[in-house]
Design a protein around this nucleic acid. Sequence first.
DNA 1: CACTAATCATTAGCCGACTAACTAATAGAG
DNA 2: CTCTATTAGTTAGTCGGCTAATGATTAGTG
Lengths: 148, 148
Amino acid sequence: MDIYQSDSVMQILSRVFKLHRRHLHELLQNYEVYPGQPPLLIRLSERDGQSQHELAAQMRVKPATLTVMITRMEKTGLLRRGADSKDQRVSRVYLTDKGHQATTAVKKALREIEETCLKGFLTEEKLLFRRLLLQMYENLKDIEEQFD
Amino acid sequence: MDIYQSDSVMQILSRVFKLHRRHLHELLQNYEVYPGQPPLLIRLSERDGQSQHELAAQMRVKPATLTVMITRMEKTGLLRRGADSKDQRVSRVYLTDKGHQATTAVKKALREIEETCLKGFLTEEKLLFRRLLLQMYENLKDIEEQFD
DNA sequence: CACTAATCATTAGCCGACTAACTAATAGAG
DNA sequence: CTCTATTAGTTAGTCGGCTAATGATTAGTG
């Protein structure tokens, strides 16, 4: 059906994104980790106890989104909130033991999928692909800043 | 903050995807077209009156997702449902006049953003990027089929 | 020092995506 | 021809993302 019609780059990119997300979720079924959560776990494993505001900025997500996500993940026991000692407005987020275990699984799964994605790529193709993707991101970010 | 840490390819790809989605939505503010709807409008403009099942397959989305989306878009007047003459299970989807106008705007916005995305790309870089992205998609689809 | 402004987080409500369970209608097997 | 299996679509419930409005706390200004 897609024979005579060539899909746009963004269409393909969107499919890659969705498939990646789905595979990752499948690999993490035993850990109660849902599709949006791996980035949060990764960030916390790099630096535990960050504020929700910091995390939201890194994840390019709105604070409101994180409030809900963190509340859910507190319920499933992956992490916990703690008060900041100096500023009572900020709540800091910490991985639990279960959260650390889940993060290990997340990283393993990410490595596996990344390897699958890049199967058949030459080293210079990987580098070039990454460079072009970054350039695309910068191009999009530039018109972003025109609106501010 | 991101100086000493190199983001993964999928992380960047995900940012590109989200930024693209957001810009498109901004450009379409005057048309009551929401982020998930452009693909549906495009498909219908290519062939009007498709069944929800056909559309879902093309869009790589579950029929349940389309049911809700189409109901909303019927309310905003972008499209309408019509009965199939032979099979009373299927409902066919048609663009309204407003839908056609919105689709024109969608295509224009997509061209603009695509141009922005590829700014500074050489012709051969565009082609190579597309080829690598497609290969990535095929790689992901392959492990997909192992699960069936 | 008091009052205003900015900041962090939450809540409510919407859109998009999924799964699972369901209804209605058609297709197929016996 | 009847009964079952398959197919198209819907509904309910969950997760992820957003905006807008609100509450609390801190920072800043006069």
